[in-house]
Design a protein around this nucleic acid. Structure first.
Length: 308
DNA sequence: AACCAGGCTGCTA
DNA sequence: TAGCAGCATGGT
């Protein structure tokens, strides 16, 4: 492989150049990714993000940087990238940063929204940063239920470093999220020891079991005729309510209209931006959301961003 | 030191 | 079907 096997892909064996869409802000992307010191699934340094990903069945260290509107993807520990791996890395980045979504329709639609309109200028080019791995997305959502984000990151950090796998490169350790197969074998006690609540421990092990046996999969969820159907199916899983189903729909299944309307962070953002003394009622939130129709996930993401 | 946190379940009426 | 208490534990 030397050049352009795939449209948009320019490669010279050791790196991939991926033209970023317009608008897209790599700086905003890195800012979002940097929001917790406890994040251990990737490392950000020198304007680049590095993480382990599974590509073509292989665990690969991937580094993403940007220059003049072009993303540069490479594997620091590999000189040559095989064609399947190069393709997989490119697909991963496109999914992770939602690069294939035309953003202008969103900006046009919310231009008149007093809440989200100004945010589209402030965070111009920010896209919904995703969780391409369904198991990771579900676990993260369940972990984050009804606890503060700081504690949620602590729990995730412990979970990943207890049951995930890692690789060390140039004196830095990179972690991959635990696999469903590994987590399905755990007993709830092994998670309560990390200070998971008993219920969350049971939920996560059950989700792992469903994914390990194949009764739950991203492919199957994406195959539903509508995202609403996929969410209905997810909500049959114990521990998965409307908030979690919409969250996963937004971050993993990529429904731009997913709307975790019960989200406390969303409520706090609306409260702050309206200068209100209290959080919005469901009816008040719905009033705002009428301007976001079809783009609720993006509106929510921008509102979350406004909190930091 | 009370109140809050990127909710969900299961019991009541 | 709707409303609500209980949960479980760290942060601020």
């Amino acid at each position: 492989m030397s050049t352009q096997d795939t449209p948009g892909l320019i490669t010279d064996d050791d790196f991939i150049l991926l033209p970023a869409p317009d608008p897209f802000s790599f700086a905003e992307t890195l800012t979002y990714l940097s929001r917790s010191e406890k994040e251990n699934l990737y490392r950000i340094a020198d304007g680049r993000v590095t993480r382990l990903v599974v590509a073509a069945g292989e665990s690969v260290l991937m580094e993403v940087g940007e220059q003049d509107g072009t993303l540069c993807i490479r594997s620091p520990d590999k000189v040559k990238l095989s064609a399947p791996i190069a393709t997989a890395l490119m697909d991963y980045v496109q999914d992770w940063f939602d690069l294939n979504r035309p953003l202008t329709p969103f900006y046009t639609q919310v231009a008149t929204c007093p809440l989200v309109g100004p945010l589209t200028a402030r965070y111009h080019g920010l896209r919904v940063i995703g969780s391409p791995d369904l198991f990771e997305a579900l676990c993260w959502a369940i972990i984050g239920q009804q606890i503060n984000l700081s504690f949620a990151y602590t729990l995730k950090e412990r979970f990943v470093e207890a049951f995930g796998s890692s690789r060390t490169w140039e004196n830095r350790t990179y972690w991959s999220f635990p696999t469903p197969a590994a987590v399905a074998r755990l007993s709830p006690d092994m998670l309560t020891r990390l200070q998971f609540s008993r219920k969350k421990a049971e939920y996560i092990i059950d989700v792992a079991d469903r994914m390990a046996t194949g009764s739950l999969s991203k492919t199957a969820l994406l195959a539903y005729v509508s995202h609403e159907e996929a969410r209905r199916d997810m909500m049959k899983i114990p521990g998965v309510g409307p908030w979690t189903a919409h969250y996963v729909s937004m971050r993993c299944l990529r429904d731009p209209a997913a709307f975790p309307s019960a989200d406390v962070g969303l409520h706090n953002a609306v409260k702050a931006l309206t200068g209100s003394e209290r959080k919005p009622t469901p009816a008040e939130l719905q009033m705002h959301a009428t301007r976001w129709q079809g783009w609720e996930a993006y509106a929510t993401f921008y509102l979350w961003r406004s909190l930091t």
